[in-house]
Design a protein around this nucleic acid. Structure first.
Lengths: 233, 233
DNA sequence: TGTACATCAGTGAACGCGCGTTCACTGATGTAC
DNA sequence: TGTACATCAGTGAACGCGCGTTCACTGATGTAC
């Protein structure tokens, strides 16, 4: 009891060696799983022995950190969620509305995609292919991301006429397009700059179209939009 | 040599018993795989023994029909492709353009989804999570579907001002939204009719917005759309 | 401060099990004549 | 038409292998006093 406070006198960010090493191994396991996914395996099909082999520890060491591979997957989702939030923060700095803002945001997005391609590959493939728990966690992250994007658009006052619900729908379309494009970009061979360029332009054009629709959207009772779509031609 | 033609005298659609039974087993294997996927398993993680057990044949019988589970998966993709094409043919009968057409098509889509939910679940989860070969095959089917939808819109003359490229982009957005909604609908518990209703309305609204943007789209040089998005408010 | 003890991340042997694949087979169906 | 032979979808035993999980362990790090 006497010297109980002595260890706590260390700087708070310099953890005890044992804790630091444990955290390091945990990270190694997570990175090993990502590496295997990047190698073409499906996360769902990864085994504990496979992951620990890649991480350079003995199979049983896995249980010191996670009960199941699903639990490791959830940790990866959380990590990827942080990446998503940073992406949004960076894209947010494109202040001027209009096509330039979209073009800039898409650039930020594609850079993040390349920089964190393993995480994105994992998220993309487990979003609909993983275990229910994983799917749910990813869906929550994406919903969160969509909400933040909507509140950004709100504060930029780009669509002052739209209700919050409609704004969310717009963002949901954009995010869906984004996740879809991510898969396409990730499957691209790196030696195809022309195709990448084209895909990027198409992606921008799609978002511009959606925003254009949003700009012309009037909050009206169901049914009366029919005329505008078919009539303006 | 003498009676060579005698067997061919049978009606062409009534195959020899052996061929028929083989085809039946093949179908059983495919349906068994779908059933397992519907049960919560990931197709990628299915094993030959698992599938044959579900189909009620001995493991080695598998090899009479497919070399690998991937080959079975490709057969499933092909089958699902037929479903997609039938869906399009039925939706096509909604002749009047405008929101009613969209609403009707979405209804057709959701009915198909419920009717063929195992196939859709398979396609949804393997679209980004499966083996490269499977992913590719699914992507091809979806591209094909998108192209057909674009040529439908073209012949309905809904967007006479749009180039073929732009029309394809629109359809690509709609199909992306469709695949995305499919996942959400499939994850819905059947005893949540209110939420389903709401999701369906949102989905319709999203498509209407996209079509609205398309109707206001002018084929112009890059950059000049900026004003319209930000200026019309 | 030094010492004796506690903690616990990672080890390594061992287990039972289901996997994919091989092989020789059987017996119903199809074919030749 | 009847008979003798060929085909081949499905069988069942057997194999070697890697899996997930258990358990008792070791030895570096942390704690008490």
């Amino acid at each position: 009891m006497r010297n109980r406070l002595t260890p706590a006198a260390k700087p708070a960010d310099e953890l005890q060696a044992r804790v630091r090493r444990k955290e390091q191994t945990r990270q190694n396991l997570m990175q090993a799983a990502l590496a295997l996914v990047g190698n073409g395996s499906s996360f769902t099909a990864l085994g504990i022995r496979e992951i620990t082999r890649e991480a350079g520890v003995v199979p049983t060491a896995f249980y010191r950190h996670f009960k199941t591979t699903d639990e490791l997957g959830l940790a990866l989702v959380e990590e990827a969620g942080l990446t998503l939030r940073r992406l949004l923060r960076e894209a947010r700095q494109a202040s001027l509305p209009g096509e330039d803002m979209i073009r800039h945001s898409v650039n930020v997005f594609i850079n993040y995609l390349k920089q964190h391609h393993l995480e994105w590959r994992f998220i993309s493939s487990e979003r609909s292919g993983g275990s229910p728990a994983l799917r749910n966690a990813i869906r929550n992250e994406i919903t969160h991301f969509t909400n933040e994007m909507a509140s950004d658009l709100r504060s930029l006052n780009i669509f002052p006429k739209l209700t919050g619900t409609s704004l969310l729908l717009i963002c949901s379309v954009v995010v869906t397009l984004m996740m879809n494009s991510a898969v396409d970009f990730l499957d691209l061979k790196p030696e195809q700059p022309m195709i990448e360029r084209e895909m990027q332009d198409n992606f921008v054009k799609q978002i511009v179209m959606v925003f254009l629709g949003a700009a012309h959207w009037e909050e009206v009772p169901t049914g009366s939009l029919q005329d505008e779509i078919s009539g303006r031609q």
